[in-house]
């Protein structure tokens, strides 16, 4: 097991957004978290990443308690993420974005004053990442000049730049065209064979095609978990989530 969420709860005022959620995820597993709006998916995502802290419960990552760790400390332990919102360095090119991201995993000290362009290990790694996320031909583009779909691909590139042990993807296909969705699904499918992945997603087809196991949240409760087929066939899920959508 790589990560275990134990009885996680979170409230905003009187609103109990998460109620005793327990989830355990194995290495190299690709897990989906779904639920209607307000189910608590994004809150849970933020709690795992460290951008929010839970009120109760614990998070065990690689056998260590990470409850008190900040987002950057969790990142250094190997928890990496791609947010829904634009989280790129807009003033930088695609290459610079990836170089900054993957430079974190290389030696520091006086190396801090060495040019990134002269660090062959970082350059090689950057090209590998760009290829992985399909951005080789856009390396010299400023990231704010990329199409929305390519920006999301780059965000995933930043998230995998430090060889994470756990990759968190928050609605990776949100706002994308069908073509862009197809591209990113194909990319994430490939990545999920190397990295333990948690995907929060609205699009059921996307989650069915990517996740091996799905957790269903509703109003802060974990109401079901199972394989995509089990979720599809669950009357409770149909009634509480899919039914609502239809």
């Amino acid at each position: 097991m790589i990560i275990s969420l134990q009885n996680i709860s979170k409230s905003f005022g009187a609103n109990n957004v998460l109620k005793n959620i327990s989830i355990a995820i194995d290495k190299k597993e690709c897990v989906g978290i779904i639920g209607p709006n307000g189910a608590g998916k994004s809150t849970l995502f933020k709690i795992i990443s460290g951008s929010l802290f839970q009120d109760g419960g614990s998070i065990i990552f690689n056998d260590a308690n990470i409850d008190k760790l900040s987002i950057e400390k969790r990142s250094r332990l190997g928890i990496s993420q791609s947010f829904q919102s634009n989280s790129l360095f807009n003033e930088m090119t695609v290459k610079e974005n990836i170089m900054v991201a993957c430079s974190q995993s290389f030696k520091v000290g006086w190396e801090l004053f060495k040019s990134l362009d002269k660090r062959t290990n970082i350059i090689t790694k950057s090209y590998e990442i760009a290829e992985e996320v399909g951005l080789t031909e856009y390396l010299d583009f400023r990231s704010d000049n990329l199409s929305y779909g390519l920006q999301r691909q780059l965000e995933v590139g930043l998230a995998i730049a430090n060889n994470p042990s756990l990759l968190l993807l928050d609605e990776p296909t949100a706002g994308m065209s069908n073509e862009e969705t197809k591209n990113i699904v194909k990319m994430v499918k490939k990545l999920s064979t190397y990295y333990t992945t948690i995907i929060v997603e609205h699009d059921m087809d996307v989650i069915y095609s990517l996740a091996k196991k799905i957790y269903v949240l509703d109003s802060g409760d974990l109401i079901f978990d199972g394989t995509p087929n089990e979720v599809k066939n669950s009357k409770l899920v149909q009634e509480r989530y899919i039914g609502i959508k239809q």
């Binding site: 990443s49 951008s51 900040s70 987002i71 950057e72 990142s75 250094r76 990496s80 993420q81 947010f83 989280s87 790129l88 360095f89 807009n90 003033e91 930088m92 610079e96 170089m99 900054v100 991201a101 430079s103 974190q104 520091v108 190396e111 801090l112 004053f113 060495k114 040019s115 990134l116 362009d117 660090r119 930043l158 998230a159 730049a161 430090n162």
Partner: peptide
């Protein structure tokens, strides 16, 4: 503009949260 340290500073100016997310000690 030319060093890793500078790239980290520019990244932090550009997007503080993303920098933290990437493990940069902002």
């Amino acid at each position: 503009e030319k060093t890793k340290m500078g790239a980290m500073v520019r990244a932090s100016v550009d997007d503080h949260e993303t920098s933290q997310m990437l493990g940069i000690n902002t």
